[in-house]
Design a protein around this nucleic acid. Structure first.
Length: 860
RNA sequence: GCGGACGUGGCGAAAUUGGUAGACGCACGGGACUUAAAAUCCCUCGCCCUUUGGGUAUGCGGGUUCAAGUCCCGCCGUCCGCACCA
């Protein structure tokens, strides 16, 4: 009689077989068509979480499916192993970042193996090992040699207590997230990669990425931020000149002031002699940079007393201000203000009582005295602008640029929001930057034969700061050029560099170089890349840049690294918490005599394992202690709403977990974890198993079942399309339908054949179950190596269809007819329908619409 | 503020080019089997009504059409990205 599918036993057995036979090792020399399926490699933070499970299951289904359809599939896995959490762990727990990272890798690798992913572990890599980052150093120096790397002073967020540089995200309310110390802006010499050289390419290259989500392309487009306009100089009354950039040269006759950034050289120079200017600059720098602060921050300006001469009218002078809203980092750090047509300029001009002059009008309203309460930035005709009058905006822009270029005082130019990529990190746990600083020779690349520059592991974290900086021996080396005393660069590379080329290293990993070009080009670009949308900008942009840079210097002839991109949703879970209101009293900042009471609430979070639900409420298990049910949020350690995949896998088996994360929610949307959901998946695995197991009882069944044959072939084709389209939830639904049909069907040869085919259909999703059934059914070889079933096109179409019979667009009945029934016949059937007759009540229809094989609509 | 996405039963969701709304799953309810339970199987399941039938229904209000979840216009709401970008 029917047995149970023993997932634990079966999972282990088949995982061992796949391992021993190296079933999923990709062959570089294969004659088959190649497919490179890649999921974003994990950071080894400790244990895998459900997000990883979902991500890797999706890629796995596609990889296994492509194998079955005759592809040589590269589906590798590795570790994005450098980064700050390792250093934080080192400081908190006194462990070595390397030891901590490698332990985590071992744990997480075992967890991934437990899920039976079809990964080529022979290509496993960890970015923290010299045999990876050494090649990265060589690539970095290659870019250096080609002028794509440079060094420049740049300001950073410096935590004076931890003696380290902080990323913007690590600065909270102006304080270091860990130390709580007030963060300083500090100028440091840092290494930059010239990503801006590729700004145009990276932008235009997006068009060719047909298999990328529009959303991600748009985000990258906005991030690159291309603006076209005019750059020109205003001559100043003090004899100087200020360059400005504008996207609206057409409004040049509406100018009423020039404004420069607080850190603009003009402001700095004035500050030297005028303390009032210095005070104003200091005031500007005080303001926070958070979104909320910027929103409410008042526009502040300081009239320098200098005036600027209008380029089209030497007699026209406008004032030059220092203004807090002008950014030094964008454009030229100076703008001219057109209050009538720019809201920000409007606010500024209103405050400082500067003229607001209309130069773009809608219709015939060309009154130069602008009275509306806000700036007008819409379309219109130029007015009050001398030679531009009557032109539309675009013509006027061209006309002004033309005159500026002819007159030699300005030129059309393009400005990008994208900045060069600063890659220096004052951190230990990263790729050492392979540069040696010599007082005589400057920054000298480490010679190729001295690579890799190995990160020393004999370091301690008992003193704040970068341990490389105080390492007794590692830091001091002779200069490769003059052999004099020199120092190693102690900064390490941003970990985004590590992840900018790992997909190339997966494709080809010779020991003597980063990759073999010919082999890498066989596999690249990645056919399908899958990962979280949080990487939509930085990682994906950097990887695109790195690949283009390699192409530019002739190392690899691939422009875009990822032909297909899919961003999957998060795995979420309810949160459970108890809120405690904390009241604190402190003297008011405005008036120290007054005591202010501040209340804030602190949440204590509870793990789902501590909670039981009763009558829609949540209680701590075994008690009447009620806790609040919070929002459904991304599983995170801080909210304690995580579910450890390993416990679930041990309880239900790998296939049930895989099935669950593919079910129900469309993969791009968030998936809410639920206990009943995983139980449902487990029940399905058992139902399928009973079908497989029952084959022996119906072995002798004979006869065909045309309806079932059709269902089977429609399912084969449907699932194939769904997997190719990464619509796993739909593939899952189709499998449920087929299983429902098989359970209901009477024994027949068709049914037996369909059940055997079902093994192949579930194989990408539930591979352990499929292998087990495949073996018991007496098939030779592994189902992992089997071919995807052929579809009989004749069975894809039904010979009967159900048509809708409508009156005035409302469904009144349905009728099953032979497929392809003629329009006239359908009309006759519909008009003869009892319901139709009753509704028409003898009246003649005004019109009859017939859509063959679909419906008849009678317009009464 | 700018840009984008989304809005369908109690819940997750399906629904080719506009053509039978709610496939499939979860939950709930009823039943069978069982001494009992688990497991399994069967049935019901958008809402409303005068229930072999009818009305109504895809955030709200309009429109186009024989026909609208799908197309157009205007609102409302939720989420995401960017943000003083010149």
């Amino acid at each position: 009689m029917a047995s149970r599918f023993n997932a634990l036993k079966s999972d282990a057995a088949w995982q061992q077989v796949w391992d021993e036979r190296r079933t999923f090792a990709a062959r570089d020399d294969s004659d088959k068509p190649r497919t490179y399926v890649l999921e974003m490699f994990p950071y080894p933070s400790g244990r895998i979480h459900m997000g990883h499970v979902r991500n890797y299951t999706m890629g796995d289904v596609l990889a296994r499916y492509r194998r079955m359809t005759g592809h040589e599939v590269l589906h590798p896995m590795g570790w994005d192993a450098f980064g700050m959490p390792a250093e934080n762990a080192a400081m908190e727990k006194g462990v070595h970042p390397g030891g901590w990272t490698r332990d985590n890798i071992a744990t997480m690798k075992a967890q991934l193996k437990r899920l039976g992913f079809a990964l080529d572990w022979t290509r496993e890599l960890a970015t923290c090992e010299p045999d990876y980052y050494g090649h990265e150093q060589a690539l970095f120096l290659e870019l250096f040699r080609h002028g794509l790397v440079y060094r420049k002073e740049s300001s950073v967020n410096w935590d004076p207590v931890d003696m380290t540089v902080l990323a913007n995200e690590q600065v909270i309310d102006g304080r270091g997230w860990r130390s709580g110390a007030l963060v300083e802006r500090r100028k440091l010499s840092q290494w930059f990669l010239k990503i801006t050289d590729f700004a145009d390419e990276l932008l235009s290259g997006l068009d060719a990425l047909e298999h990328w989500p529009d959303k991600v392309k748009l985000m990258q487009e906005n991030w690159i931020g291309k603006s076209q306009g005019l750059q020109f100089g205003w001559s100043l009354s003090d004899g100087g000149n200020v360059e400005v950039f504008t996207t609206r040269p057409d409004t040049i006759f509406g100018a009423s002031f020039v404004a420069v950034a607080a850190d603009h050289p003009i402001a700095a120079k004035l500050a030297e002699s005028d303390p009032a200017v210095a005070d104003f600059i200091a005031l500007c720098k005080q303001g926070g940079t958070t979104a909320a602060e910027l929103e409410t921050q008042e526009k502040l300006g300081f009239d320098t007393g200098i005036t600027a001469t209008h380029p089209f009218d030497p007699a026209w002078q406008i004032p030059v201000y220092i203004a807090n809203f002008v950014l030094m980092e964008y454009g030229t750090g100076a703008v001219f203000g057109v209050p009538a047509h720019d809201q920000r300029d409007f606010e500024f001009a209103s405050k400082y009582r500067l003229p607001i002059r209309r130069v773009v009008s809608e219709g015939d309203d060309t009154d130069p005295d602008f009275t509306a309460g806000e700036a007008y930035s819409g379309p219109g005709t130029i007015c009050n602008s001398h030679f531009l009058d009557g032109m539309d905006i675009e013509d006027a822009k061209r006309a002004v640029i033309q005159r500026a270029e002819d007159g030699g005082w300005g030129k059309g130019s393009t400005v990008f929001r994208l900045r060069d990529w600063g890659v220096s990190r004052q951190r230990y746990w990263g790729t050492p930057i392979p540069i040696i600083h010599c007082d005589a020779c400057g920054a000298v690349p480490v010679p190729a034969d001295q690579l890799p520059v190995v990160l020393p592991e004999d370091v301690s974290f008992d003193v704040p700061g970068n341990p490389l900086d105080r390492h007794p021996t590692w830091k001091h080396v002779p200069c490769p050029t003059c052999a004099g005393n020199a120092r190693r660069e102690t900064d390490t590379l941003d970990t985004f560099v590590d992840s900018s080329w790992y997909f190339i290293r997966f494709a080809s990993q010779p020991s003597d170089k980063a990759f073999d070009r010919a082999v890498a080009e066989k596999w690249l670009p990645v056919a399908q890349y899958i990962g979280g949308v949080e990487h939509a900008i930085l990682h994906l942009l950097y990887a695109r840049f790195w690949t283009r840079a390699l192409k530019h210097i002739g190392m690899l002839d691939i422009a875009e690294p990822f032909a297909g991109l899919f961003t999957q949703g998060m795995v979420t879970h309810e949160t459970y918490y108890r809120a405690k209101v904390i009241r604190t009293e402190r003297p008011s900042t405005a008036d120290p005599e007054t005591i202010v009471t501040e209340s804030s609430s602190i949440q204590t979070w509870f793990s789902p394992t501590e909670i039981e639900r009763r009558d829609g409420k949540a209680f701590l298990i075994g008690t009447d202690d009620e806790v609040k049910v919070g929002r459904i949020e991304k599983m995170s350690k801080s909210k304690k709403n995580t579910v450890d995949p390993t416990h679930i896998v041990d309880q239900y088996g790998a296939d049930a977990v895989r099935w669950f994360v593919l079910s129900d929610s469309p993969p791009e949307r968030d998936l809410e974890w639920s206990e009943s959901g995983i139980e449902g998946s487990w029940r399905f695995v058992q139902r399928v198993w009973r079908l497989f197991d029952g084959l022996t009882e119906t072995a002798g069944a004979e006869g065909g079942d045309k309806a079932l044959d059709r269902k089977l072939h429609q399912t084969i084709a449907g699932i194939a399309a769904d997997i190719e389209g990464l619509a796993f939830n739909k593939a899952v639904a189709k499998l449920y339908e087929l299983v429902n049909a098989l359970e209901r069907a009477a024994p027949s040869a068709s049914r037996n054949a369909a059940i055997r085919t079902l093994m192949l259909l579930v194989a990408p999703m539930a591979p352990h179950l499929a292998e087990e059934a495949w073996a018991i059914a007496g098939n030779a070889g592994l189902i992992a190596d089997a071919a995807w079933p052929e579809v009989d096109p004749a069975l894809l179409v039904d010979d009967e269809v159900t048509i809708a019979i409508q009156v005035n667009g409302k469904l009144r009945d349905t009728q099953t007819v032979a497929k392809g029934t003629a329009r006239e016949a359908l009309e006759t059937i519909a008009l003869a329908n009892a319901n139709v007759q009753r509704i028409l009540d003898g009246a003649a229809p005004r019109k009859v619409i017939v859509v063959p094989d679909r419906l008849v609509n009678i317009v009464a």
